[in-house]
């Protein structure tokens, strides 16, 4: 039953993408609206999956790469619903559907076994730290999507502002997530910073976005330059999230 929710969610994301594509090809706004409904249904099914898994495993579904990836994908769609009024044009729905399909497809390659928590993860800090980091990645993914659209098709100023808000929120959450992780590390490992590869790459990602936001605020960098910065910043996010788990070992190795 549990996996069925996720499979159905995948099917609805696919349906949403097809509906958006058909709406665009045949210039039918009704199809686009049905696409929104399919997207909402996909997100609700994903919510059910996560709730069911939380209940069945007895811990928040953020304890391994599979669980955190489903949660991050859930967060991207949730944030897209929150910010859709700020997004100009019709790109958000199709972009979210395509990205969610890619992320859930990737989930199919990961180990989805419900495993008991190792002693280090048996803490309420797991919920606080990982959920905030996943929401940060979700907001930065929205910034990346807006930038990709800006660079390829539409150089709308409203899109640049959307990018600014998404990146700003992502940066704030990333900062809060790193801080929560540092406080947790001080409770569990005896040091708030150990230069573990995950910590270091989070700091690297934070430095990239610090530079981007500083350049925008003090030097009025915007438009294409900021969009390129967002694309590059998201590459650092991806490496911190995926690359470190597979290429480097450290205190965060159970995240793989």
């Amino acid at each position: 039953m549990n996996a069925t929710f996720l499979n159905l969610s995948f099917a609805f994301y696919l349906a949403a993408l097809i509906l958006y594509a058909a709406g665009y090809m045949f210039a039918k706004p009704g199809l686009r609206r049905t696409g929104h409904a399919a997207l909402a249904a996909a997100w609700l099914l994903q919510t059910l999956f996560l709730m069911y898994r939380w209940r069945a495993s007895g811990h928040v579904p953020l304890a391994n790469q599979f669980e955190s990836l489903v949660s991050m994908s859930w967060g991207i769609t949730a944030l897209a619903f929150c910010f859709h009024r700020l997004a100009p044009g019709d790109w958000l729905g199709p972009a979210i559907s395509a990205l969610s399909l890619a992320l859930l497809g990737l989930c199919a390659l990961l180990d989805s076994t419900v495993a008991p928590l190792v002693p280090a993860l048996r803490s309420n800090w797991l919920l606080l730290h990982v959920s905030v980091i996943m929401l940060a990645y979700a907001a930065l993914a929205l910034s990346f999507l807006a930038s990709a659209v800006y660079l390829t098709t539409d150089t709308d100023q409203a899109l640049d502002r959307f990018n600014e808000r998404a990146m700003g929120l992502g940066y704030l959450l990333l900062t809060a997530g790193i801080i929560l992780g540092a406080v947790w590390a001080n409770e569990a490992w005896g040091s708030y910073w150990s230069w573990d590869p995950k910590e270091t790459w989070s700091l690297i990602t934070w430095i990239v976005y610090t530079a981007a936001i500083h350049l925008r605020r003090t030097h009025r960098w915007q438009g294409r330059s900021m969009a390129w910065f967002s694309v590059a910043g998201f590459a650092f996010v991806l490496f911190t999230y995926f690359g470190v788990n597979y290429l480097m070992s450290g205190l965060h190795s159970y995240a793989g």
Binding site: P197, W201, L203, I204, I207, T210, A211, M248
Partner: peptide, 23 residues
């Protein structure tokens, strides 16, 4: 100056990357 800040951030970033590649 901010340009000096950006230079420092870039240098710190490169050293952090090197630190994870050369543990």
């Amino acid at each position: 100056s901010p340009p000096f800040l950006y230079g420092l951030l870039l240098a710190l970033l490169l050293l952090c990357v090197a630190g994870t590649l050369l543990p």
